[in-house]
């Protein structure tokens, strides 16, 4: 028997929360489709099918009510975030393997929804970039710059039949982050590099618009009160401030804050990935520390790390710190004087 409060009619629900998150991702997906072609639709479909399939399979194995948990929509959110983090037009098994790591390893081996320590989509991404670095760096070029703009038939062909028909050179190009990094290592200055055509107006042709679309979706999340301002703001501020500081110190070797905000996974990360409530810090102050740390680590990894983008590893590293951060940032309880709460001996 359950006691008060007694149900008071229609309320918010977890499936509805997940649906709203998916809806907020749609502008970014549309922009992606517009600038990079139909590949994103194929990868979204693949990760969605794989994630839901793995979710159902593991729920069965774990003797859990399949329908109740499958309808919470969390597997779809993970699938979409994973697809939006991966290069499109990669072989199908890459998406399936990523979904496996996200759903089976990162989520269910830790106890299922609500129990996982690490962001599932980012675990999927990290597993793939460590295991298959070649495929993970072949990003399709923006349509307007590609030698050959792949259509629907090309997309399905490349994903399911392999790259026999088209050479990667025909449709891929180095990402802005990647090529900036290699060219700076080759001794060129930021200013000279950013003048090249792929860098567009703010950070990269196409990519900058996708980032802006994620920003719009993120604003919708805030407006729907699905997340608080703390994590996105702290994340973006930390990226901008650390990139800005580096840029001030050595403008020839470090791109400015706007470039860092508009490239790679920063916008997606700030609004949709770092904000995953399960793996993020939960106290107001803790959220600032957690997201600020993730933003700072993103720039650190981009600047000195071995990978072109750092969002995934930055988020995963900060996920590890969450229990610690939460423990030391508990809000002051009403009627109590001390703010900090020490862990029990």
């Amino acid at each position: 028997m359950t006691g008060a409060p007694f149900s008071l009619g229609p309320r918010n629900s977890t499936p509805r929360v997940m649906l709203k998150v998916l809806a907020a991702l749609v502008p970014g997906i549309v922009a992606h489709y517009w600038f990079f072609g139909p590949g994103i639709v194929v990868s979204l479909l693949l990760t969605s099918l794989a994630a839901v399939g793995f979710e159902a399979f593991v729920l069965l194995m774990r003797n859990q009510p399949v329908r109740l948990h499958l309808t919470d929509g969390s597997a779809l959110v993970t699938a979409w975030l994973l697809a939006l983090s991966l290069p499109t037009l990669a072989p199908w098994w890459l998406y399936v393997a990523g979904s496996f790591f996200a759903i089976v390893v990162a989520k269910h081996l830790y106890g299922g929804l609500g129990q996982n320590v690490f962001n599932p989509a980012m675990v999927g991404y990290a597993a793939l970039i460590v295991s298959f670095p070649l495929y993970m760096t072949q990003w399709p070029a923006p349509l307007e710059l590609a030698v050959h703009a792949p259509g629907w038939a090309d997309a399905f062909d490349l994903v399911f039949a392999g790259q026999g028909a088209l050479s990667p050179d025909a449709y891929t190009s180095a990402t802005p982050l990647d090529s900036l990094k290699t060219q700076i290592l080759a001794g060129r200055t930021v200013e000279a590099v950013l003048g090249q055509p792929i860098y567009g107006l703010l950070g990269g042709v196409g990519g900058e618009w996708v980032a802006l679309a994620f920003l719009a979706g993120g604003a919708a999340l805030l407006a729907m009160r699905l997340t608080t301002w703390h994590i996105p703001l702290a994340f973006l501020a930390a990226v901008a401030l650390s990139a800005g500081a580096l840029h001030l110190i050595d403008p020839a070797r470090h791109a400015g804050p706007l470039f860092h905000l508009m490239t790679g996974g920063v916008m997606l990360g700030a609004f949709f990935i770092a904000t995953d409530p399960v793996t993020a810090s939960t106290t107001p102050l803790g959220k600032l520390v957690y997201a600020g740390g993730a933003g700072l680590l993103t720039v650190v990894i981009r600047t000195w790390g071995g990978f072109p983008d750092g969002v995934a590893f930055a988020v995963l590293l900060m996920n590890m710190c969450v229990p610690f951060i939460d423990d030391y940032t508990q809000p002051r309880v009403f009627g109590k004087t001390a703010r900090l709460r020490r862990r029990a001996p």
Binding site: T14, V17, H69, L113, P277, A280
Partner: peptide, 8 residues
């Protein structure tokens, strides 16, 4: 359903 630590 499962708690997702949303903080509501």
């Amino acid at each position: 359903r499962a708690c997702i630590r949303c903080g509501e």
